[in-house]
Structures are given as structure tokens and as C-alpha cells.
Amino acid sequence: MQTETHTVLSVQGLSKTIGQREIVKNVSFEVKAGEIFGFLGPNGAGKTTTIRMLVGLTRPTKGIIRIGGYDLSKQFLQAIRQVGCIVENPELYPYLTGRENLQLFARMTEDIPPARIEEVVRLVELQNRIDDPVKTYSLGMRQRLGIAQALLGKPQLLILDEPTNGLDPAGIRELRSFIRHLSREEGISVFISSHILHEVQLMCDRVAIISQGEIVKTGRVDQLVGSHAKVEWMVEPHHAGVEKLRGLPYITQLEVLNNGRVLVHMPMEKIAETNQALVAEQIQVSGIRPYQQTLEDIFLEMTGGNSIA
């Protein structure tokens, strides 16, 4: 009972078969109150398909979805009342103004006072353009109106499907801080899908990684990524350098490239220590290049070399 109140979204054994293909396979995870949960996977992994099931647009082939303790398939109205969502693109009625769109959706939910519309408009900072037709909005403004729409019913859980798609870097930064604000100040849980590792690293508390319809890993973001970075070393003499690096206990993989370059998997914080060790052996280090870890790297690591997609 205790965990029930702290888990906003619980998904157990969720599967979806379309035609002959199983697109989502036995997916389970939990989203706790107030956390930002990342749903990370490459394109075509099944993120959108999963989200469609979470918001009741499609019926799961198997599995149970509970939102705020309500079973989505049995108590749809109570469960969906807890959710605000944008599935894929923020599509609203282009021929209505922003305000008319919000009023229209407010009329579909009980107990949304007119003041709440003003509130969400201020929250997403659309006051200046709210009375313009949506067809004149930029993608960023549509995204904000979409979020305003999602927040109307004061949801416990906000579900966003790749919300940074198509936004410029400034827009992405803005969205990131906005989502963090919602989670920290308003206590809303956020479920956010993405195919960009970096984005999830910056925004999320916990993450589930999905590949080909299956969850391959769930955990805290800092535990999952960052521990194993790739670093390229340029060492002279080459052979001695490679031998020295190979001897270091914290280096997990080593790959010899041409032109005296060596690519190793190692923790980022050991770079200075490694450098000292090499210099102490009279090995010259002419270059150190740490690589930003990509989603592919994590997959390679977890699946032992089998490429994704």
C-alpha cells in the first residue's frame, strides 16, 4: 500500500502485437511521484507505441497499466484524469486560437475553472500570442501550447513523446528547465521519451532503455551512463604506450588505431591519473580526446558488440 501511493505510473508485462509483429515485448517499469523518468531508445524501438498504450489510444495485447493506482483498462476515466500528454507532435486545431483550443479541451474535463487557463498560459509564457490562430504559431509555440493543454487538468503525470524534436538549441534548453521546474516545484512526475542519450542525461532522474521493443536496462541515469567513457590517446613510442595502458586495471577495452592512436574504455575521472602513469614511463602523450558517449556505445556495451537496429 505504501509503494502504491508513491508510484504514479506502473507498467507490468506490457506487450503489443500489430499484425504478426510484436512491437513492444513484455515491458515493465515504474515512475515514482515527482521524478523525471527517461524512456530512451533509438528510432523504431517502440517508444511511441508504448506511449500510445499508456494514454489509452491503443489497447495492450498483454500487460497492466496503472496510473495513480487506477487500472487504465478498467477505470479509464479515473486513470486518464491523472495524465496530461503530448503524443508525437503537438497537434492542435490550427483554425482556432490558442485560447480557444485550451477552452475546448477544458470543456472536456470537469472542474477546470477559467482561471486555470490563464494560469497555464502564464506558465508556458504564451500570453502575447494566445489569441492568435494556432496556424500562425512556430513549432516551439505549438509545443508550449501543447504542454499548456497537457497541464490544464493539473495532472500528476505528464507524458511527453520526444518533445525536443524539431526545436532549436535555445528551445531545447528552455524546455529542459521548464520540465525540471514542473517536477521540482509542482511535484509532477514526467515521463519523457527520447532517442538522444545526452538529452536524457541532462534532464532525467531515472531511465529505462528500450531496444527493439524490449527494456534492456532500467536504473538511475548517473549509474547507467558516464561510468564508461571512450578516450582516445596519442602516445609515443606507440608499442610501450599500448602495453602500459593495457596494464592499467580500470581500462576495460582497448583498441589500437593507426598513427599511434589508441582507443580505450575507461572512467573519465581517471584521465589525469593515466596521463601521469604514462609520463612516468617516459611515454609522450601528444593528445587526449575523450568521446561523448552515445546511445550506440551503451548498447554495444550491454549487448556485447551487437549493433542496434
Binding site: 494514454v55 489510444l57 503524443v87 492542435l92 479541451f105 472536456m108 474535463t109 470537469e110 493543454q149
Partner: peptide
């Protein structure tokens, strides 16, 4: 075709 069905059917309305 406008994609708004996704908003319409995720309200607390049957």
C-alpha cells in the same frame, strides 16, 4: 488527419 484525435481521446470522456 490533423492528429487531434490523440488529444480528443485522452480526455476523461468515454
Amino acid at each position: 488527419s490533423g492528429g487531434t484525435i490523440k488529444l480528443l481521446l485522452t480526455r476523461p470522456v468515454r
